[in-house]
């Protein structure tokens, strides 16, 4: 598994052999649930290879928590509890927090870029994906307080009543994030969901979970209340069906799943009449374009509430 040691990396390759220089502190990668970084309750992990690059503090192989059904359950619980206060914040305030996220992403540009390159992107690709991700965060930050204006309506009913229809968040949205793009995929699927007041339980890309964890570190430092976004690592095929069955999950947004899993999630979701949205690989790729953002992404996770009231004296 071990490929090659770089000059200034210090680690023990075998008993008795110590490389020269400073011993670095390795990062433990954890899932992000309820505003905290946690291991899987199952104690399980899986390993992701790092492509060795200059300047990396990572060991070549990192251990990533292999999330379980119970991790999913815990995440849904905190997401459920976080929903009401998050939705109750003003749209302006949610926008401020998403903008703060953009600022933090910008400040962590180099770390995000190197995380993407370690997962196989070229430097140019990584740079462009990080830039696009930051810009997309700004895009959705500025969207929070526009949603209602765009989709709400005054209904000209035939009678002495005032009627209007306003959007509301659905609640807890489970997201099976795109395998790639790992960072832009997360930003593009999570932000439109939470912009309107939903909270999210996300199963991160199995291919590149480390980038997801770095992204979570950005979330954790951007004033986002704990529990609004919860990111699990592991196998979507293991965790997602339980989320689809979970009665407190209101919607599922499936980006990376084969036909069998997608069908399974749609089927399991029917038990509580979930709003199930499925996308294929082409849709994942399209997230890289300008078309990868927009009102449509937000609208899919809105409920519409119609209110009537008499007009009289």
């Amino acid at each position: 598994m071990v490929k090659k040691a770089t000059q200034d990396r210090a680690y023990i390759t075998s008993i008795g052999t110590v490389a020269a220089g400073r011993v670095s502190v390795n990062k433990a990668y954890k899932m992000y649930v309820g505003g905290a970084f946690v291991r899987s309750e199952s104690g399980r992990y899986f390993q992701v290879e790092a492509s060795a690059i200059a300047g990396s503090a990572d060991p070549e192989v990192v251990n990533i928590p292999l999330g379980s059904r119970k991790d999913g359950r815990d995440a849904v619980l905190v997401a459920k509890n976080a929903h009401e206060p998050w939705a109750a914040r003003t749209a302006y305030n949610r926008g401020q927090i998403l903008y703060r996220l953009a600022e933090v992403l910008e400040s962590r540009r180099s770390e995000l870029t190197s995380s993407l390159t370690r997962a196989g992107s070229t430097a140019a690709e990584a740079l462009s994906e990080v830039s696009a991700s930051i810009d997309r965060a700004v895009y959705y930050a500025g969207f929070c307080d526009k949603i209602s204006s765009l989709v709400a309506s005054h209904n000209p009913v035939s009678g002495p009543h005032f009627g209007f229809t306003m959007p509301e968040s659905m609640g807890v949205v489970a997201i099976v994030a795109p395998e790639e793009p790992a960072l832009l995929g997360l930003v593009s699927t999570i932000l439109p969901v939470i912009a309107s007041g939903n909270t999210a339980v996300v199963i991160a890309s199995r291919r590149d979970p480390r980038t997801a964890v770095v992204f979570c570190e950005c979330l954790a430092t951007s004033d986002l209340p704990g529990g609004v976004v919860n990111v699990l690592t592991g196998d979507a095929s293991e965790i997602a069906p339980h989320l689809a069955k979970h009665r407190e999950v209101n919607a599922i947004d499936t980006w990376s799943a084969d036909d069998a899993l997608r069908t399974l999630l749609e089927r399991e979701g029917s038990g509580s009449v979930k709003r199930v949205r499925s996308h294929d690989g082409r849709a994942c790729a399209a997230l890289r374009d300008e078309d990868g953002q927009g009102l449509g992404f937000i609208e899919k996770f809105l409920e519409f509430k119609t209110v009537w009231h008499p007009v009289g004296i």
Binding site: N155, G163, F304, W308
Partner: peptide
Amino acid sequence: KFDPSSPF
């Protein structure tokens, strides 16, 4: 109350 212009 129902109306065609009013989402239900």
